[in-house]
Amino acid sequence: MMFNGQVVVVTGATRGIGLSIAKAFAEQGASIAICSTKDDQAKKVAADIGSSFNVQTYGEGVDIKDFDAVGRFFDNVCDLFGQVDVLVNNAGITRDNLLLRLQKDDWDDVINVNLNSIFNTTKSVIKRMLKKKYGRIINIASVVGLMGNPGQSNYAAAKGGMIAFSKSVAREYGKKNITVNTVAPGFIETEMIESLPKEYLSNIIDNIPMSRLGTPSDVSRAVMFLASKDASYITGQVISVDGGMYM
């Protein structure tokens, strides 16, 4: 199994793309630590993954916006598993609206959860990875961070920020065998896009060269690749998993 003996942390992993990523690593033998806003859900999903794939798991409710809370989460993970080999920054929310109608809270929430969170998590693991001279950090951004999207100025800003952050951290720690890459999913079949109007969605599909939405496992396979030995010499890159939307 590809990730036997490795410890993988996935944020926002109780559903959607994050859940798919956590399961994919568990299937390959990794110990899995997940966090989510709700403690009971994080613990339940961690337990389910543990019993389904017969791996060690840990789940905790963490306010990802809270630097100290995130630090304590990683302390707990390291007390339990001793290390973090792979960090997948997946937690994200949307608060869509035209800029004209977008409220300050909508802006702040999206920037805090999607962008400030990756400072909190990455800062918490980087010293540990530096000591081990090994680490794989994979940030889940979005095609929207590359192209922009009406109604998502907040989300696009956060996702574009993630990409720039990834490239900078990749440059800082490349020589220490820590790689930092971004996966930019297009429109993926998750609860996040269920709320979109049908008409809007069919319009989107018309603009996807592959004429279909993506699945969470389309994304998790790209993440696994970037975390694997096969991707040892790849850092600072953005891999789009979007059916060709952005090229």
Partner: peptide, 9 residues
């Protein structure tokens, strides 16, 4: 600068 961080570690 990275060397000095590692030195401190």
């Amino acid at each position: 600068s990275l060397d000095t961080v590692e030195l401190v570690m």
